[in-house]
């Protein structure tokens, strides 16, 4: 069941993005930034958390989950150490993805040459 929901959820997000890019002048950069903001916004009322609970992996891989993870980590730390925790815990969850992207892309940039 989670597989079907994963397919539908992740597919639907990509379909919306494709519809936006085909019919407006917005670029891929605009859309990804917009989706991150939407993902963070949906977590004000715990909506994205509920989506992740029933959809599973399909909700964790689109860029919206980046915004969700940021606000989620920030609020968790905020609960623990008060107002200052909102800044302290911002990257607690997403640090894995960002660090991995930086380290891996650095070494691959060292090894490979740009095509054309």
């Amino acid at each position: 069941m989670t597989y079907l929901l994963s397919f539908l959820f992740c597919g639907a997000l990509c379909l919306i993005a494709q519809a936006i890019i085909d019919n407006t002048k917005l670029s891929a950069g605009h859309i990804t930034s917009m989706f991150v903001v939407i993902g963070a916004g949906l977590d004000i009322f715990d909506i994205y958390d509920k989506i992740v609970d029933c959809v599973g992996g399909g909700a964790l891989v689109p860029i919206t989950s980046f915004g969700h993870s940021l606000i989620h980590a920030s609020l968790d730390q905020g609960m623990e150490s008060g107002f200052f925790g909102l800044m302290l815990g911002m990257f607690n969850i997403t640090a894995t993805g960002i660090t991995a992207a930086i380290v891996i892309s650095f070494f691959i940039a060292l090894i490979f040459r740009p095509k054309n």
């Binding site: 397919f7 959820f9 992740c10 597919g11 990509c14 379909l15 494709q18 019919n23 599973g56 992996g57």
Partner: peptide, 25 residues
């Protein structure tokens, strides 16, 4: 063809979602 683009995006995105769920489990 915009319709074809929409369908491709839906299917490719969906397959990545399925793969993500598979890897997670």
């Amino acid at each position: 063809n915009k319709t074809v683009n929409l369908i491709t995006a839906f299917i490719v995105g969906g397959l990545i979602g399925v793969l993500a769920n598979f890897l997670l489990e």
